[in-house]
Every structure is written in structure tokens, then in C-alpha cells.
């Protein structure tokens, strides 16, 4: 803590000296394309993070970003705004209800249900855990050859969690299977490429029934054949100045099934992730990770 106290003032000064500019407008994650690097319409941004993923065929994966102070501040601002609006509606709904109750009493009819007071959970504000979610693939390949397909995606630096092979639909739903019952997280530092290779696809547990319902039963054999082809790594064809580091995976706890999809998990990875039955174990320390409160995405019918 003493060291932190010494570093903090220097860092605060450095931040204060940065000009306030268009970085205030949040940048969206974007796939990096080789042709765009070639004509300089895309370039390495030292303030942005880069995630690389590859495999022997087209793949895709969805990642959550662990909330930081900025995420929480944005969340609280959204909650305050929504709550102010909801409270106004509630106040007028309450007035209407009181009048309706009086009218019902006069007509000797049952009183209508009282309006429910808004709470933070009923406002419909996106939870912090889902903000900055990003899906990489299956489109917008960065590089491909006879043996592998590689993706390169620009993101906000931070800690990312693998949420599973989930594909977003135009309607806003995700389809596929989440790694809700155990997964991995990795840090994405600014200015370098964090390379996942095909580790995530190799390590996610294959459930034949889930595969049958999200694809075809025969896909299980195809998945096993794919895995037998072994690891892929690196990003071919990056220009000078792009550094690639392998992702350092850490065990991560269970996550809610926010999108009502099939439930899966990343399989045990020696030295990283283990399980005591369903309890997720950080194999780096041997500690069981505490489960979060898992709740249904459905509203209860009281």
C-alpha cells in the first residue's frame, strides 16, 4: 500500500496533463482487417487492447469485460436517470390508482392492484457485467491459410471473461452455449495483442445433447476431429510494431445465464482451472471460487 501511495500522485498528475479530446466518446470494439492496416485506415492504437483468436476453421466467441470504475459510473448514471423517470411515472400511477380504488369502492367492485414501486432491479438497466460485451468472429477474418483462420479484434483494455460460443442475432438475442458454470479470464493490456490461439475452443466441454440442439448430432464427431488437429497460435502478417503476447488464463467463477441459452463450461485446464464437482477451482492457488447469486432471467409470477 505504501508503494501505491507513492505511485498514485505521479499517475494522477500524468492523467491531469492529458488533453480532454474525442476520447470522451466511447470507442466500440472493431475487427482489424489486413487490408485496412495496409491502407492505414486502421492502425495500432497504444491506448487500445487487441485480442487474437484462431483455429483450423472459422470460429467465434463472446467475451464479457469485468466492470471497472468507469463501467460502474456509467451504470450508476443510467440507473439514476431511469429511476428519476420511473419515480415520476409511479407517482402519477399511484394518484390514478387511488382514484380508481375510490371509484371501485363506490361501485362495490374489487380494488385494482396497487402499482409496484420501482427498484433498481426492475428498471431494465443493463447490468455492469454485460456492458462492453464483445463477440469475435465468425466473420471478418484477419488472416487465413491452408491450416488456420485468425481473428484480430480491437477492444477497450481490461480483464475479459470467456462467455462461450455465442452468436448475436439481429433481435438482440444470443444463441449457442454459455460457459456459465466455469470459465477463464485474461488481462488485455493496451498496445499489445493478447493471443488466445484456439485454446478456448479446444477446452470447452462438448455436450452431445447441446450440440444436437444447436447444430446437428453429427457435429460432435466434427468437433472432435477439429480438436485432434491441435493448437493454433500467433497472428501471421502483422506489420512492424505489433507485439503479440500469449493470453494468461485464470479460472473464473460461474456467471448468470443472461441470454437463456444452453449452459456449459470450460473443461479443466491443468495449472489454470479445475473443478470439485461443480465448484470452480483456481488451479493456480487451489482455492475454490465463491459462486455468485444465480437468478433466473425470467420475472417471477407471484
Amino acid at each position: 500500500m505504501k508503494r501505491l501511495a507513492m505511485i498514485a500522485p505521479a499517475l494522477m498528475l500524468a492523467t491531469a496533463l492529458q488533453p480532454a479530446h474525442a476520447a470522451d466518446k466511447p470507442k466500440q470494439p472493431v475487427p482489424i482487417e489486413k487490408t485496412k492496416l495496409a491502407d492505414a485506415s486502421q492502425k495500432l492504437d497504444p491506448a487500445r487492447g487487441y485480442i487474437a483468436m484462431s483455429d483450423h476453421q472459422r470460429v467465434f466467441g463472446t467475451f464479457l469485460r469485468v466492470p471497472d470504475d468507469g463501467t460502474m459510473a456509467a451504470y450508476r448514471a443510467d440507473v439514476d436517470k431511469a429511476m428519476a423517470k420511473a419515480k415520476k411515472h409511479y407517482a402519477s400511477a399511484l394518484e390514478t390508482w387511488e382514484a380508481d380504488v375510490k371509484a371501485a369502492a363506490q361501485l362495490k367492485q374489487p380494488a385494482p392492484a396497487k402499482p409496484v414501486e420501482p427498484t433498481e432491479q426492475t428498471l431494465g438497466v443493463m447490468v455492469p457485467e454485460l456492458r462492453d460485451m464483445v463477440t469475435i468472429g465468425p466473420m471478418f477474418i484477419f488472416a487465413k491459410d491452408a491450416n488456420s483462420f485468425t481473428y484480430l479484434h480491437e477492444v477497450k483494455p481490461g480483464t475479459y471473461v470467456y462467455y462461450g460460443g455465442l452468436m448475436p442475432m439481429p433481435s438482440g438475442a444470443l444463441i449457442g452455449a454459455c460457459t456459465c458454470m466455469g470459465t477463464v479470464a485474461f488481462e488485455v493490456k493496451p498496445g499489445v495483442v493478447t493471443d488466445l490461439g484456439n485454446t478456448l475452443n479446444q477446452q470447452t466441454e462438448i455436450d452431445p445433447r447441446t450440440v444436437a440442439m444447436t447444430g446437428k448430432p453429427a457435429d460432435v464427431k466434427l468437433l472432435e476431429k477439429l480438436r485432434a488437429k491441435g493448437p493454433t497460435a500467433g497472428v501471421a502478417g502483422l506489420p512492424q510494431g505489433w507485439d503479440v503476447v500469449p493470453a494468461e488464463l485464470h479460472a473464473y467463477r460461474k456467471i448468470n445465464n443472461y441470454y437463456g441459452v444452453f449452459v456449459g463450461r470450460v473443461g479443466a485446464i491443468p495449472g489454470v482451472l479445475a473443478y470439485h464437482r461443480d465448484k470452480v477451482v483456481d488451479a493456480r492457488t487451489g482455492q475454490e471460487l465463491p459462486d455468485p447469486l444465480i437468478t433466473s432471467r425470467q420475472k417471477p409470477k407471484l
Partner: peptide
């Protein structure tokens, strides 16, 4: 931003429960 790397990993490992509380049903 100013946390040591260890704390970043701790957050990722879910040891800070409050910021990532799921949207509870009322």
C-alpha cells in the same frame, strides 16, 4: 487504474462481489 496487478486479477476472479451482482428479480 491505480490498483496493483494482483488486485485486477482478484477482481477477475470474482472476489469483489458487489460490482458484478446479477440483476435480481423483485
Amino acid at each position: 487504474r491505480y490498483y496493483a496487478r494482483g488486485a485486477m486479477v482478484a477482481l477477475a476472479l470474482g472476489w469483489v462481489a458487489a460490482p458484478v451482482a446479477a440483476q435480481e428479480q423483485g
